[in-house]
């Protein structure tokens, strides 16, 4: 008998969007739908750039890269620091999902404090959104890579990495099929970054529709009442 299912990531229950946000989110989605091709690989995609900018400001970071899942961001955080198949890393407070995913990448987890922490992470929820700056503050200096997971806002899997080291960002973008560098090669007809070559690549690109909702939520995080 025919059957379908939806994928449920371990340990995550996606919450329903709050009623008072229906109008503003519907409005922003309608506006994005009406504005042209909704394509994450368009050169001038403004929703993705806008979200990157908001996150950069929030995390006080020079470079931000967006992903269509938390695990995509974890992969990029490690790959960007050359923590690859056969490497070791440390993840304090790693969830069961973290452990399983990092193991699948072929990266070993250790508790030895001599090994640097792979990345810091913050899960952004409706509960902590209005005080997200305070949540982020202690994390900013602890690791060169900060992963923000926006999935629990309810728009679909969405995460980012924030870094100050350009080479980490470059490698992270290289992990994405049609990330920033593949895109440049399309327009210039020349390999954009021959020295930092891609290996395995995944489609971790975020939909501009999801990005638009996350961006709106971040911009209005201090409004107590919506429309």
């Amino acid at each position: 008998m025919a059957h379908t299912t939806i994928i449920t990531a371990p340990e995550k229950v996606t919450p329903v969007i709050k009623k008072e946000q229906y109008f503003s989110l519907s409005f922003v989605l309608s506006r994005v739908l009406n504005s042209g091709v909704i394509m994450s690989i368009e050169k001038n995609e403004s929703e993705l750039k806008g979200l990157e900018k908001s996150i950069g400001k929030l995390t006080q970071s020079k470079y931000v890269s967006l992903f269509n899942s938390y695990t995509g961001a974890v992969h990029a955080a490690l790959w960007g620091q050359d923590i690859v198949h056969g490497s070791l890393t440390r993840l304090e407070g790693a969830s069961e999902q973290d452990q399983r995913f990092v193991n699948w990448l072929g990266v070993g987890l250790v508790t030895d404090s001599e090994v640097s922490q792979g990345f810091e992470k913050v899960t952004v929820t409706w509960d902590n959104l209005s005080r997200i700056e305070q949540e982020l503050l202690p994390k900013l200096q602890q690791s060169p890579v900060l992963v923000l997971d926006f999935t629990e806002l309810g728009f679909g899997p969405c995460a980012s990495i924030s870094v100050n080291d350009e080479s980490v960002w470059t490698k992270a973008e290289r992990l994405k099929i049609f990330g920033a560098f593949d895109l440049k090669t399309m327009w210039t007809q020349e390999e954009a970054e021959p020295d930092i070559q891609p290996g395995a690549q995944f489609n971790y690109r975020l939909s501009p529709l999801v990005a638009a909702c996350v961006k709106l939520s971040l911009l209005r995080r201090n409004s107590s009442h919506e429309d």
């Binding site: 990531a9 699948w104 679909g156």
Partner: peptide, 10 residues
Amino acid sequence: TGIDYRMSWI
């Protein structure tokens, strides 16, 4: 694997 390949509801 814990890998999150879910589609967004949007």
